[in-house]
Design a binder for these strands. Sequence first.
DNA 1: CGATGCAATGGCAACGCTGTCATCGCGGGC
DNA 2: GCCCGCGATGACAGCGTTGCCATTGCATCG
Lengths: 342, 342
Amino acid sequence: MAKQRQRLVGRRSQVTVRDVALLAEVSESTVSRIMRGQDLVTEATRQKVMESVRALGYVPNRIAGSLASLDSRLIGVVIPSLSNIVFPEVLQGINAGLAGTDRQSVISITDYDLDQEEVVVRNLLAWQPAAVLIAGSTHTDATCRMLDQSGIRVVEFMEIDNPPIDVVIGLSHVGAGRATARHLVAKGYRRFGYVGYGGTVDIRARMRLDGLRAGLAEAGLTLQAESLSDGQTSVEKGKAQTADLCARAPGLQVVVYSNDDMAVGGLFHCMGAGISVPGDLALFGFNGLDIGRALPQPLSTIRSNRFQIGRMAVEEVLSSTARPEGGRVIDTGFEIVEGATA
Amino acid sequence: MAKQRQRLVGRRSQVTVRDVALLAEVSESTVSRIMRGQDLVTEATRQKVMESVRALGYVPNRIAGSLASLDSRLIGVVIPSLSNIVFPEVLQGINAGLAGTDRQSVISITDYDLDQEEVVVRNLLAWQPAAVLIAGSTHTDATCRMLDQSGIRVVEFMEIDNPPIDVVIGLSHVGAGRATARHLVAKGYRRFGYVGYGGTVDIRARMRLDGLRAGLAEAGLTLQAESLSDGQTSVEKGKAQTADLCARAPGLQVVVYSNDDMAVGGLFHCMGAGISVPGDLALFGFNGLDIGRALPQPLSTIRSNRFQIGRMAVEEVLSSTARPEGGRVIDTGFEIVEGATA
DNA sequence: CGATGCAATGGCAACGCTGTCATCGCGGGC
DNA sequence: GCCCGCGATGACAGCGTTGCCATTGCATCG
């Protein structure tokens, strides 16, 4: 007596390899081989099978396939935010690197929260990804342990100021901050202000500020005024905080911003308030966004190579499934964009 | 003689429910129940099992879980691009809607290519997602068929100018274009120019242009000059094309842009060229981006509700696994932002 | 005090596919 | 004429988890 248990009654009717094999009068193996593009089958068989595939509207179930082959073809990507334009740009680079391969990215957002990141990484690893690309190199202990023990490739991107789990790709944000200081000091500026992010969760903004301070210290200088804010940076905040800073600290020669968004806001304030840039006040950003180039006065800033970072991260994990001995650091560098605001 | 086949030799050693069950001296079922948070187990057993989970560093394999339960907990998202800021904003809405649920989004990019979209949808469906959220409602026949026959929830978002497969959420872009025309005509403008996207792949920009023309026609007017471009819009293109338009067509009273990026570029051109806005020339955008509000002169534009679109799309698919009879159209509307440039 | 109900746990097949080997058929070499 | 080799195909056991019962143990009740 057949004990055909009726499991998950009423579930979605699904076309499976079995159905295709039955219709095409071949074995499931043959169907599977054809669907995966293995070329050990006769053209005649392939035709016959593909016809059945079309007739039934068969779409292979990659969940079953991944389980059977123990290879999910998934690349996990962890970023803090989508509202900061730099991360979509990195994603574009990742996407470009993935184009034409059979890998697929899965993106998770942490909202700049390391505990959230831990949750997100755990959920991601549950999908057995072939690799994880994760922004930043500061994580909770548990996150580091999970990533390390997973054995898969792990690329930490954006900053290279910390030692890697596997590979890090990006630029030194401390270095960028320091370079900003040196560049502006060399131009003769002495009275510095800072406008931007002053919290602790955007670690890279923080590192740039630290680098800036260190660079100024080398020249015996300090920041004479700061207008710090928490949370998401924006053009509007940059505008408002610049107004605030100008009111509180007259006599500044140059304001350094945590990023271009804020700097653009600063420029808008100056335009509205009749402050001549860079004569009365010079402005300096970070990121090298497109909008900076289109401004009436091109923004002086530092270009980071976000697209390239994403692309190289993908190339790295596709190149080998083995981690390099003792980790690896790939510096994508940064360049000062002269512009016309400093 | 044991015929324990050595399958996939040298594969990643993986901790499974079996290992946890063995260590905790319970059955696999119990471990599974605990991992899924079902509360039919004693607290004592839970403690014991969780201890083993921690000791072994067990992470459930969701691929196997999805196969067994025939529920992947995945939400497929298909968007044309990440470089157009509006899509990351929709993604944020989607993410917000998904937060706190056990669903996970998987994002695919089409590069505004309908054939690419077809490929991407096929690959996405292979992951057996619980729903697909897809930008736009113009697809290839094959794409429509696949989405329709999948039986899962399908939300087409951004535009509501076409009939839905299941549900559409967004705004009427033709309507937005027409509203722009009416608004500006009512303000007394008569000599209109257009700057922006003129290709065929960004269908929504095209629809807004069509609506604009229709709205002008109602008042017996036409566009007196256009500067069209293909490909990605940007602030820089907006600036350059505005310069071009002003040179070619002096005497225009107002320029309508395909989006805020282009309009911001237009404003930058005017600032640099000493053109008084809106006195000499009025400018009008589309989207209602944050940057428009921060400009020295707030941009006159139309606000679309991208975040809300994403959020509502998620709420819709989470609310029911059944498609509404005959489809449904959810209009998130748009509002004219007065601004100071028109 | 035995029957009954219920909460807690166990056993095991099934999810749809792929890896691995077995098998089949056919042509060529000796 | 026989066997070998090889290309093409088939058979089947997993992959790690969950759904669906079955079973167990214990308290309750007439």
